[in-house]
Design a binder for these strands. Structure first.
Lengths: 116, 116
DNA sequence: CAGAATCCGGTTTGATACTG
DNA sequence: CAGTATCAAACCGGATTCTG
């Protein structure tokens, strides 16, 4: 997930999907949006199926793409808060619509829809 | 990209991203939408950076998820046409929104935006 | 608490050649 | 034309251990 952002995007759809098309990125943004701010450990609990390594890695990518703010509190025990940026806030309507589409599909397919 | 659709989705966002979050899926849907119907070879030319193997594989996944129609003409030389389904047509406004977000980001970052 | 570091298998993706 | 088949490389992602 490094070279992806180095090679020139073919088009804008390509560009966009490189930034949020990963396995966890959409959900991370969505969960943070819903709570306004989330700490590392909270986010990990919501994600439920992610390892610390992947979460760290994905958060760093989002941060370096300007889609997340990372605020470190210099205290013990450590505390780090993640919030959306102006740029990623603009993605929320898209994610939400996609989510609604997903809900509709899941109902049709009779897959239990869990809330978050 | 097989197990992805076997394990239970965590939530609707997860569900949706498994269906269109791959490296090429969004673009494939977008290009087909823009041309209404595309043949295998045409699509490959538009994608520009995909191998026949990946294109085949991705098309099959989209088809089995009910996001693409695949119409085979029994003639020589072979001819196969891909079109959107009702389900995937509902996704187009979102993909377009995402595309517009991408365009804005690319302009900001001074990355040349190519049309498709 | 919020990670960093390492090891390692599995999956994804790619190059190339071939076919009905 | 629309794919298959095969092999190899790259990347993803998980488990575990460790630390300021």
């Amino acid at each position: 997930m490094d070279k992806k952002n180095v090679t020139e995007p073919i088009c804008a759809v390509d560009f966009a999907f490189r930034r949020i098309g990963g396995k966890y990125k959409g959900r991370i943004l969505w969960y943070i949006f819903n709570h306004e701010v989330l700490r590392f450990g909270e986010l990990k609990r919501y994600m439920d199926d992610i390892t610390t390594k992947m979460l760290t890695q994905t958060l760093r990518e989002l941060e370096s793409d300007g889609l997340l703010h990372r605020k470190v509190y210099q205290e013990v025990p450590p505390k780090v808060e993640y919030t959306l940026t102006e740029t990623s806030e603009k993605l929320i309507p898209f994610i939400n619509q996609l989510r609604e589409w997903g809900v509709a599909q899941m109902i049709k397919a009779k897959i239990p829809v869990r809330k978050h």
